[in-house]
């Protein structure tokens, strides 16, 4: 009974996931025996060096890739290797250059069968929250990097799913824009109540955003540390200089260096 309760409370479960990448010449092990449970409303960060298979793990969670071993459970249902309706946001913003901001953001609604007019007004309602008011008719190349990222996030949030899979959404941005967007993301999540699996290679970003950090090793990626982050919310930018933040940072840095 208790076990069942717990399962219902978990949006995403990854069980003993192992994956290899077939480069044509050799099969490289990418992920090794990864297990994690994402609770409802939880923000989990996958922290690790580049090439540790973090992006592959997100694709496996979305069902875009079938792992060699292991299971994926989404809202208690097995979904291994079957594409699921989840808020997946790939590494580049991937806004379609031939669609305006409005048309890009409306895509998930149209895919769900909503009428064009209704989808447009839904998107327009949300534009101010995403700091994009007045830019509906702009094409992606006319927007700044930060705006594109916010537009991509708006599109991702409009995919009707309780789960967000975000693959280094702020990695390509300059430091100042990135920090602003981190704060903004937290405020947006307070409104939308989603569970988030967030890939990053920035220790600060992981601690600042997440309730729980999974430290992933270099290839083949394994979870070397699961660290709950017990910092109060809402978090302001100032938190990154406080003692608890810095002790988490020291701990994660040490673990990153000592492994492999």
């Amino acid at each position: 009974m208790e076990e069942k309760m717990e399962r219902n409370n978990e949006v995403l479960i990854l069980e003993n996931i192992s994956a290899t990448y077939d480069s044509g010449e050799a099969r490289l092990p990418v992920l090794k025996d990864i297990s994690l449970r994402l609770k409802k409303g939880e923000f989990a960060a996958l922290l690790g060096p580049s090439g540790s298979g973090k992006s592959t793990l997100l694709k496996i969670a979305a069902g875009l890739i079938r792992p060699d071993r292991g299971r994926v459970l989404l809202n208690g249902q097995e979904s291994t290797g079957r594409v699921q309706k989840v808020g997946y946001m790939p590494q580049q913003d991937l806004l379609f250059p031939w669609k305006t901001l409005l048309e890009n953001a409306a895509l998930p609604l149209l895919a769900a069968g909503m009428a064009k007019k209704e989808a447009s007004s839904r998107v327009r309602e949300l534009l101010p929250i995403f700091g994009l008011e007045g830019f509906a008719r702009y094409y992606p190349h006319q927007l700044s990097g930060g705006m594109r990222q916010r537009a991509a996030l708006l599109r991702t949030v409009l995919i009707e799913s309780s789960l967000l899979l975000l693959d280094e959404p702020f990695a390509a941005l300059d430091a100042i824009t990135r920090e602003n967007l981190q704060e903004w993301l937290l405020s947006v999540l307070e409104r939308f109540h989603r569970s988030v699996l967030f890939v990053t290679h920035s220790i600060d970003e992981a601690i600042y955003l997440a309730d729980r950090v999974y430290l992933i090793s270099e290839r083949p990626g394994r979870i070397v540390l699961e660290q709950p982050i017990e910092l109060p919310r809402p978090r302001s930018r100032g938190i990154i200089t406080t003692a608890p933040f810095l002790s988490y940072k020291a701990l994660l840095m040490k673990s990153l260096q000592s492994k492999d």
């Binding site: 979305a62 699921q84 309706k85 997946y88 790939p90 379609f96 895509l107 895919a111």
Partner: peptide, 14 residues
């Protein structure tokens, strides 16, 4: 055509 764009649409169940 970038396969990631196709993945993106698949995830939206297009």
């Amino acid at each position: 055509v970038d396969p990631e764009t196709i993945n993106l649409l698949k995830v939206m169940q297009a």
